[in-house]
Design a protein around this nucleic acid. Structure first.
Length: 418
RNA sequence: GUGAGUGUAGCCUAGUGGUUAGGGCGUCAGGUUGUGGCCCUGAAGAUCGAGGGUUCGAAUCCCUCCACUCACCCCA
């Protein structure tokens, strides 16, 4: 027997209501904030990701689905959503559009990882990106969308972590301070952190090892090393967030795992404990467009993991609306009635009324049982007598009331019901 | 990549060495003429994750592999 590849899964019909519900919320929200949808290919040239995410990140080093296509090109299934959107921004000259350009996406993301609760090899992200303006108000707007998205979905108590990790001007100085500090504790650090100290000192701060955490706890904070511009940006952002009544907490250890972030970084966590719990996160990436070959273009974005949202909706026992299904079942008895049933079903469907038809050769009892299982509101019953008379029986499944009416009146009558 | 736990029909599950692997849910059919839900009866559906070994005999004990789950790590 075949089975879905490791870390992937089918979204079966019974699960679809969660997914469509979440997607609808995302789309509505983006409309409200003026973000337009963009869909990009599932794969890109490998170097796009290597350049943007950072060569020394785990994603690029060991988690990408990379292969050579038949033309000899290095191809990678997208391991995150931001870089492809940046590529599209550049490729289609979107800097010529009125700035800022505000986009959103809903896409599959691929990473080769050990699957566990809330972590898959193919997962789905909803994300927003804003290009062309570095106003702190936009940082606040993106954080606000993320927050409203999760709030609208009622996934339970949330916390909003915020930090600023500076820019080209001030970060190098901070990294020196940080390295100085960590060097004093280097023998207490875990093996991973010993390499981080040289390769990617910022990541020292979010190590989960107890000892490293202790060291991180009293480490110098990036917000204390910000240049005047970054400091002001962060200050204004915090004022906006207060204005929007978003309950953020500044977390000095929040740095994020992708190298392109500058200034603002943030994450949304549920209060309930769990290992793979981060629902969403993002930040500013003011140099990425430039690094990919464009003009200097500030940008900010966020992404959320839909699987984790679904997980939380289930944990919170949120009742999502059922997807629409046909509410009419056409039962028939006898050969002529069957022909009439086929005709009638098509008439109803063309009038925009959803109809279910039984497979042939069942007793009326079996057909009604089926109608019951399918949970339809009404069953139309057609037998020899009805064909003769040009009528149908309409049975209300909840009340068991039946009425006869001329076939020709059925579409109109059904449309008039609720 | 590391560690732990778990694999019995579509789903849940009984069965820890002894004859045809039992039950529940679900599915399908029937319970006299053209009427569902409750109830009753019946049916289909399992090479007990795969392979090997121990044994007169293995779902059950041992080994290997695979998958799933959870955690580390990483992140959404």
């Amino acid at each position: 027997m075949y089975q879905a590849p490791r870390g992937t899964f089918d979204i079966l019909p019974d699960e679809q209501s969660y997914w469509r519900y979440i997607e609808q919320k995302a789309v509505e929200l983006c409309q409200l904030y003026g973000y337009q949808r963009i869909d990009t290919p599932a794969f890109e040239e490998t170097r796009l990701f290597a350049r943007s995410i950072g060569e020394s990140t785990d994603i690029v080093e060991k988690e990408m689905y990379t292969f050579e296509d038949k033309g000899g090109k290095q191809i990678t299934l997208r391991p995150e959503g931001t870089a492809p959107v940046c590529r599209a921004y550049l490729e289609h000259g979107m800097h010529n559009l009125p700035q800022p350009v505000k986009l959103f996406y809903w896409a599959s993301i691929f990473r080769y990882e050990r699957p566990q609760s809330g972590r898959y090899r193919e997962h789905h992200q909803f994300g927003c990106e804003v290009f062309g303006d570095d106003a702190p108000a936009l940082d606040a707007e993106v954080i606000d969308i993320a927050w409203q998205f999760f709030s609208a979905l009622d996934v339970g108590q949330l916390s909003l972590n915020l930090n600023s990790i500076g820019c080209r001007e001030c970060r190098p100085g901070y990294l020196v301070v940080l390295q100085d500090y960590y060097s004093r504790y280097s023998r207490d650090l875990c093996p991973d952190c010993k390499t981080r100290l040289k390769r990617n000192p910022l990541r020292l701060l979010d190590c989960k090892q107890p000892l490293c955490r202790q060291v991180a706890g009293s480490a110098p904070q990036s917000v204390d090393s910000l240049c005047p511009q970054c400091g002001e940006h962060f200050g204004r952002l915090k004022r906006y967030l207060e204005l929007l009544e978003l309950p953020f907490v500044v977390n000095h250890c929040l740095v994020r795992g992708l190298d392109y972030y500058t200034r603002t970084v943030f994450e949304v966590q549920p209060e309930s404990e769990g290992a793979q719990s981060t629902l969403g996160g993002g930040g500013r990436y003011d140099y990425l467009i430039e690094e990919l070959g464009g003009n200097p273009t500030p940008a900010i974005g966020f992404a959320s993991g839909i699987e984790r949202v679904v997980l939380n909706l289930k944990r919170q026992r949120v009742a999502v609306p059922a997807l629409p299904r046909p509410r009419i079942f056409v039962a028939h008895l006898g050969d002529e009635a069957k022909v009439e049933a086929v005709r009638l079903a098509s008439v109803l469907r063309r009038a925009g009324i959803g109809v279910l038809e039984p497979i042939a050769g069942k007793s009326l009892k079996a057909q009604l049982r089926q109608a019951n299982t399918l949970n339809v509101a009404y069953t139309v019953i057609i037998g020899e007598q009805e064909v003769e008379a040009g009528t149908v029986i309409l049975r209300n499944m909840a009340t068991s009331e039946q009425k006869n009416l001329p076939v020709a009146q059925l579409p109109e009558y059904l449309q008039s019901l609720d």
